[in-house]
């Protein structure tokens, strides 16, 4: 066996379900408070204080849900695929559980993004659904999530299920840029991306600062939801071990 000593210590600790359960127990309240605070501030700011768009009026306020949801749905997939890869390569159980916890959250967030996109489309484009490039990519992302959830629930053995879904998630990850490119090429009607990392946003700051707050809030919410699911998964898989028994009886 070739010993891999080049990974930092916390990486090995992460592999211990018990350590992971304890650390998430400590992190949960922090992220929960952060999520509630940022989402509350962001929502009030977005709904009441941010200026209305000069073209779209107040329906513009949907952006404060739609854009964070879209960003989160994509990064959630990324996280799932990376966690799956770590689980495949280092046979790390916790990474498998993280990947499994990500899928349903990502799917619901993708649905949220699609629903708000459709609702926003009604006053802006005049119809609930438009086959525009970015809505279509999001729909396909939702399909990828649903495929992963379906595969995971079809396989009974937890380890096989985790490995199979990891392979599928990685294949999807390779495909996402191709799908995005082809769908973009196929049709585009949407306004260009609201947030890019390299350029300054075109919106005035009183519009994008609350958006940033909402994005952070959504990430904190994701952290909370993911950790809750992860902890459930840990308890369920480690139910035979003594520390879980103590946890339940104690």
């Amino acid at each position: 066996m070739a010993e891999k000593k080049w990974m930092p210590r916390w990486f090995y600790q992460l592999a211990s379900p018990r350590w992971c359960y304890e650390i998430t127990g400590k992190l949960l309240p922090i992220f929960a408070i952060a999520a509630v605070a940022t989402l509350l501030v962001g929502t009030i700011w977005a709904l009441a204080f941010a200026p209305a768009d000069y073209q779209q009026g107040n329906s513009f306020r949907i952006i404060y849900i739609h854009v964070p949801a879209s960003i989160l749905a994509q990064s959630c997939y990324m996280m799932m695929a990376v966690a799956g890869a770590i689980g495949l390569i280092w046979k790390m159980k916790v990474a498998d559980m993280v990947a499994k916890a990500c899928a349903p959250i990502g799917a619901t967030i993708a649905i949220l993004s699609l629903a708000t996109g459709a609702i926003w489309g009604k006053p802006t484009w005049g119809s609930w659904w438009v086959w525009d490039a970015r809505l279509t990519s999001m729909l396909i992302l939702l399909f990828l999530y649903l495929g992963i959830i379906a595969l995971n629930s079809a396989i009974e053995n937890a380890q096989t299920a985790a490995q199979s879904t990891a392979v599928l998630a990685l294949v999807g990850l390779v495909n996402i840029p191709i799908i995005k490119y082809s769908v973009d090429w196929w049709n585009t009607l949407h306004q260009p991306a609201t947030f890019t990392l390299t350029e300054r946003p075109a919106m005035p700051s009183e519009m994008w600062v609350p958006l940033l707050v909402m994005v952070i809030g959504f990430y904190c919410f994701f952290a909370v939801a993911m950790m809750l699911r992860l902890r459930n998964e840990i308890i369920q898989r480690e139910r035979r071990s003594s520390w879980v028994r103590d946890l339940i009886t104690g």
Binding site: A150, L151, A154, I155, L168, V171, Y181, W185, W186
Partner: peptide
């Protein structure tokens, strides 16, 4: 390959694979 061990792989394959087929279909 992912569904070969499952008894009812047929429908599942379509679910897994159809989204990945989209770029080929488009072009």
């Amino acid at each position: 390959a992912l569904t070969v061990g499952l008894r009812k792989g047929g429908v599942l394959i379509s679910l897994l694979v159809l989204p990945l087929y989209i770029p080929v279909l488009i072009f």
